[in-house]
């Protein structure tokens, strides 16, 4: 039983089944790639459905309400109903909008959000592309999402959107730096940027124990990266209505939403992989552990959102550059010195 619970084993069984029907092993590889891509997209779209429901339930429970409970058992189909509604909505384009930029922005935002899923180790060996620069790839891809926000903000021909777009650029660029530096400590300890190696290095000790400061810095910067409260200045409902999304309706708006929740999942997965030992854990199969940890991280982010007020833009910038950046740098120095001392004694 233990053998087939792992995701990789399931893939091997699938591969064996496919091998019976397809003669060429290359064809089998292509089929497996397609299945992998399909499952990643399934995960992303399911994520949005599940996380929106979870968010609404979490927020409701924290405010002592019951949340959605009408559509489907316990309201579980509420998000599906919402999706149907969004698809049926009229697609309104503001007059004077830069048509192509405006239409491209939500799609372009979705691409990096989906692309980062390639390097996520869902289970032992269950990783689409175990790049040797996995961490670097994640950072590079996720920083791409700045541009679509600015595009959406500029092309909407709306002042609220423009202010929101400008805010995104300032916020995401300045929080990228401490985020990268906080991850750097992990890379130093693991000695690799390969996701599977980093997880394997946490077999006995999770890196959260060795790098608590890095974890705190990562969680804060990740919240800022995905524009969630208390760093949701981009949307900042009470200030700039909905920021870059103000002029979007229907499915275009839903794509923003989808990307937002895909990003939420992505940063939770990275936190799990880098700090919480990935799929490592006793008794249960690896992927169950993995999703439990990811779920815990997602809950943490939701918890933040429904507790804290929003920061102001100047406070946000000074917090990023004056507090988080020095803290992350200090963490790297301490990690470096610590590693030398450790090597010296052992």
């Amino acid at each position: 039983m233990q053998e087939i619970t792992g995701l990789f084993k399931i893939a091997e069984i699938l591969r064996a089944i496919l091998g019976r029907f397809l003669s060429d092993p290359q064809l089998v590889d292509i089929c497996m790639s397609l299945i992998n891509i399909g499952s990643i997209f399934t995960i992303i779209s399911l994520t949005a459905v599940v996380l929106v429901y979870a968010e609404r339930k979490v927020s409701a429970f924290m405010q002592r309400r019951s949340g959605p409970n009408r559509v489907g058992p316990g309201g579980t189909l509420q998000t599906v109903a919402d999706m149907v509604k969004l698809m049926a909505k009229e697609d309104i384009m503001p007059a004077g909008a830069d048509k192509w930029m405006w239409m491209l922005a939500p799609i372009l935002l979705f691409i990096p959000a989906a692309a980062v899923f390639v390097v996520f180790p869902f289970d032992n060996k269950a990783i689409f592309a175990d790049l040797n620069i996995g961490v670097f790839y994640f950072i590079a891809m996720s920083s791409q999402s700045v541009l679509p926000f600015l595009m959406a903000g500029w092309a909407s021909n709306n002042k609220y959107s423009l202010v929101g777009g400008m805010r995104t650029v300032a916020q995401m660029l300045s929080y990228e730096v401490p985020m990268v530096l906080s991850i750097l400590g992990i890379v130093m300890l693991a000695g690799s940027m390969r996701m599977s190696t980093i997880v394997a290095a946490q077999q006995h000790t999770w890196f959260i124990l060795l790098q608590p400061i890095a974890f705190v810095v990562y969680v804060i910067t990740a919240t800022a990266e995905i524009n969630r409260a208390p760093f949701d200045l981009v949307e900042g409902e009470s200030e700039i209505v909905a920021g870059p999304f103000t002029e979007y309706t229907g499915m275009r708006w839903a794509l923003f939403f989808l990307a937002e929740y895909a990003n939420l999942l992505a940063v939770s997965v990275i936190a799990t992989t880098l700090f919480l030992g990935g799929w490592n854990g006793p008794w249960l199969p690896g992927w169950v552990w993995f999703f439990l940890k990811v779920g815990g991280m997602v809950f943490l982010f939701m918890w933040f959102r429904w507790t804290f007020p929003r920061l102001r833009i100047d406070q946000l910038m000074s917090f990023g550059w004056k507090v988080l950046l020095p803290l992350a740098l200090l963490n790297i120095i301490v990690t470096g010195i610590g590693m030398y001392i450790y090597e010296f004694f052992s």
Binding site: F61, M62, R64, R65, W303, W306, T307, F308
Partner: peptide
């Protein structure tokens, strides 16, 4: 203060619904 606030919401999370 932030942690205290989180404690309040967590307590609310597990308490009885008022609606």
């Amino acid at each position: 203060g932030l942690l205290e606030g989180m404690r309040v919401t967590l307590k609310a999370f597990f308490s009885k619904k008022e609606t």
